[in-house]
Nucleic acid binder design. Structure first.
Lengths: 346, 346
DNA sequence: CTAAAAACCGGGAACGATTGCATAAATAAA
DNA sequence: TTTATTTATGCAATCGTTCCCGGTTTTTAG
């Protein structure tokens, strides 16, 4: 069943005018007499005429839609970031097409091809945790396609980038645990490919060294799928807690899904938080306050990250000349101390 | 900065053929010789030719994109439903444009106009909790525009509808609480405008009456914004617990956000669940098992709802003749009993 | 060897809207 | 009255693709 829309031709025919006159009248051109304008505009309103955006896109060579690729929308951080993106995009007359990589490199490529073939005007992407090879992005980028990275940025490409101060977030979290008496602090980290992981590890590392605590590489476990699979978090924690000479009394989880899956593991093992094992995690969940014990978190300004990213992207899209100067914007994370990061059993 | 794509004309010029020949060669028409086809296809591949979907849309009068309107994507139920929708849509070559009403009637209308003007081929909608007047939907529907309702369906329109057995979900939840010894069970319900609210109230009502318990209208509080605002849930619970001769020992929350905000309220008032007040709620959150006490929930098959809805929509879009027979599909919710619905203090 | 039938390919209209250019009529200036 | 100028409108190209309608060559049949 087709849904037939009113076109400019219908108006022209009905009013005995040419399509150009109608088009100009609707755009309020100075070349059209006030009387003709009035007739056209009133008739258009009456039959509920709407310009066909597809025809416009074809002519203008732009679709006024932008693509977003994230791992999962069912992830508080990303759904909040998307809210930020949409809040600006809709105001500026762009619509967004969201695609999910589900942390798969392969699906990221498929999504990218799909979006590119839907002729989007630009791309906002937070790469999948499997993404190491960047050819798919480099290809587009070389051809002058506007790309902005957010959260999981890729350093090797000259584009706008928006993220948080991951180093500081991890540094603060580690320091908080140290202050509460923990000397053996482990880290459950995301994919090693991601720069955010490296930065968070670096922050953790530095905090230990600033407090004269030894750094032990065995205290870090990387999860390739960023905690999306419970099993990988389970394995990581098994190793850290039971196959490690140096049993930690506290854990830092470096991503949303890692944080919740760590909790799930502790619960299944009947480990009390924070007395058996303390923890603090990166998380943007809205109900970390409702958990028992309430969860200490590093929270990222997801909404703002989305807003800044889309603004940079639209600026680049609407630029007449190719962009040569790219910005890297770093927002500050927020540490919320609650119960889970407390002192160990004495 | 414009991103110039390769067109069929470029191929034609480079190969000394006409655009029609190139077009046919790429579509594997029988009218083109195998040799020509080979040359064209290889060259197209080499220069990475992609057909322009906008030009196709203009010609075919369809955009192969469908609109989704939900209240919030940062809501487990809806993000899961969207995952279900996308899983099918992408396979069938459709892309989805997501818009959020944030439970506002006004924004729902704006979104609808926006989507319609973006020439989507069909619409999947779960109406906002403020939506009482349906003119905006009726208008589109009258013109033969394909619409499928999911979750929050609207009975007055002849369209496909997909939802869960809300009556049964609430009936089971109520029965479970009764079995655990609760005689005074209150309900924190969503917007009165929504049919799902009415059905859930009816299920609750029937369960009470089947167990010879009195029904007291003062034991139900409606939240117009479906729990999106903490204050409305707070007000509702204040009334139920402290301005009510009949203080409940258990509460049923009839939506995701209501459930979490009830918990937040109990926590703020230092009420122990389930000993001070038991509860069970509709929720699709993935970490209700991690709460203390773990939360008993009615879980909806969100992913499947999304899948069924998009399948019906695509079927309708691709139908040659106008659809006259509409389906209403009801899936079964799942009750997961955990700690929060336990017995009251004895 | 001729006529018919394949086989293969190009021209151009169409989709809906915009826009540079041409044109006609009306008015103003000389 | 003639020319110049303004005013108001139409024609046609354009964006990228498909497809109807022809047209030419080659093959096949009689």
């Amino acid at each position: 069943m087709k849904y037939e829309a009113v076109t400019i031709k219908d108006i022209a025919k009905a009013l005995g005018l040419s399509t150009s006159t109608v088009s100009r009248a609707l755009r309020d051109s100075y070349e059209i007499s006030p009387e003709t304008k009035k007739i056209v505009i009133e008739y258009a309103q009456q039959i509920n005429y709407r310009p066909n955006p597809i025809a416009l896109s074809l002519k203008e060579k732009r679709s006024r839609s932008i693509g977003i690729i994230v791992c999962e929308i069912a992830n508080s951080f990303f759904s909040q970031a998307i809210n930020g993106i949409e809040s600006i995009a809709y105001d500026k007359g762009y619509n967004v097409i969201i695609a999910q990589s589900h942390e798969s490199y392969e699906r990221e490529i498929i999504n990218l091809q799909y979006l590119a073939s839907r002729s989007i005007d630009g791309l906002l992407i937070s790469v999948s945790s499997e993404t190491e090879n960047l050819d798919h992005l480099i290809n587009l980028h070389k051809r002058g396609f506007p790309i902005v990275f957010f959260d999981r940025v890729v350093e090797d490409l000259a584009t706008h980038k928006v993220g948080v101060d991951n180093y500081k977030g991890a540094y603060d979290a580690t320091t908080e645990l140290i202050k509460n008496g923990h000397q053996n602090i482990a880290m459950v980290a995301g994919s090693e490919f991601l720069s955010i992981t490296k930065e968070r590890v670096a922050g953790y590392h530095q905090a230990l060294s600033d407090h004269d605590l030894p750094f032990d590489a065995n205290q870090i476990e990387y999860c390739l799928h960023g905690g999306m699979l419970y099993e990988e978090v389970e394995n990581a924690l098994e190793k850290l807690l039971y196959h490690n000479n140096n049993k930690p009394t506290a854990v830092i989880a470096s991503a949303d899904k890692l944080t919740t899956n760590c909790l799930r593991y502790f619960k299944s093992k009947n480990l009390q938080v924070p007395s058996d094992i303390a923890m603090i995690g990166f998380s943007n969940l809205d109900l970390t306050d409702l958990l028992s014990p309430s969860l200490s978190v590093i929270r990222q300004p997801a909404f703002e990250i989305g807003q800044v990213a889309i603004e940079l992207l639209i600026k680049q899209i609407e630029n007449k000349r190719p962009t040569t100067e790219f910005e890297k914007i770093i927002l500050q994370p927020q540490m919320i101390i609650r119960e889970s990061s407390g002192a160990k059993k004495s």
